[in-house]
Simulated assay, not measured.
Amino acid sequence: MHMLELLVSAFVGVATLAVVCSGLVIRFKSPQPRIREESENFFISIDEKHEKQRLGDLNDAASVDLSIVVPAYNEEARLPVLLEDIRKYVSNRRQKQPRFKYELLIMDDGSQDKTLAVAIEYARKHQMRELKAVRHVKNRGKGGAVTQGVMSSLGRYILFCDADGATRFGDIDQLLSEAERRATNGMAIAIGSRNNQALTGTVVERSHIRAFLQWGFHTYVTMLGVRGIRDTQCGFKLFSREAARKIFPNMHVERFIFDVEILLLAKYQNIPVAEVPVNWHEVAGSKMSIVRDSIQMALDLLAVRLNYLLGNWKIKN
């Protein structure tokens, strides 16, 4: 009997500690997205006649084939590589589809360098009138920059990709093909994956420590309920417009863990997600701190999962 009482007491103690810790995580780690500043409703382009123009709205009808959203924070050195890759892709595609229309949204997330100026200068040099540069008053984080960009997109399909050019941009064709094949009621998501290269011949180059951390994070994500996705964090994800309308108005997370919230929202709303192998290589200059941001991501993910499980966050249809 004494042993049973000890076990019951231990169970009650552990359960109480779990409840208290969960409450603290929800209280202090739940993200609070800030309201968009008025100046953030506009973009700058190389159109001298109308240099500053109002952004589009995800609720509007699509007016271009593809929107490309690039979150950028202090990316003056790495951004031109991606811009060149995109320009070459568009040039090749227009040889096959002369009427192909796109827009390129560079979401300058409060950079302290010349990211925005570099983007505009590249657009002027190559007469890239489709480039729209948006300046955030304050840094939101990668997830916030992506969300704001997608919410302002006009594309039938919407892709977000990292500013470092780590993923070969031409791989978007595989994502588009798979999204069209898997679409249900016009809704589909196709995400780049760095974990299937052995089966497909795609090339992935990463450090051993990055590979180990990705394995650990994947295990943690699986434990918290996101199953069936090998690579949640690849910064190369494509959405049909209908799927984006279901996902992004519901987003809360503005930092690194936002990818997992996207996949949770897709799961809750039965939106098909296709994982597509892509070519990827590690690029120097990452803004992520391996130790600090890994801990931050773990706590943020726990807060996200608890808020949805407890019904604190409601999904708007």
Rank of each mutant, 00 (worst) to 15 (best):
E76L: 05
L82V: 12
L82D: 11
L83G: 03
D85W: 11
I86Q: 00
R87T: 12
R87C: 08
K88C: 11
Y89H: 07
N92G: 15
N92H: 10
R94C: 02
Q95H: 02
K96M: 03
K96F: 09
K96N: 09
K96R: 11
R99P: 00
R99T: 09
R99D: 13
E103L: 02
L105R: 06
I106N: 04
M107D: 03
M107E: 07
D109W: 05
D109G: 03
S111Q: 12
Q112G: 15
D113M: 06
K114A: 15
K114P: 05
L116S: 15
V118T: 15
V118E: 10
I120S: 02
I120T: 07
A123H: 04
M128F: 08
M128T: 05
E130G: 01
E130D: 02
K132R: 14
H136W: 09
V137N: 07
K138N: 15
K138T: 14
N139M: 15
N139Y: 15
K142M: 13
A145F: 02
V146S: 01
V146M: 07
V146T: 01
T147E: 08
Q148E: 13
Q148V: 06
G149D: 06
V150Q: 08
V150W: 01
V150R: 00
M151N: 04
M151K: 14
S152Y: 11
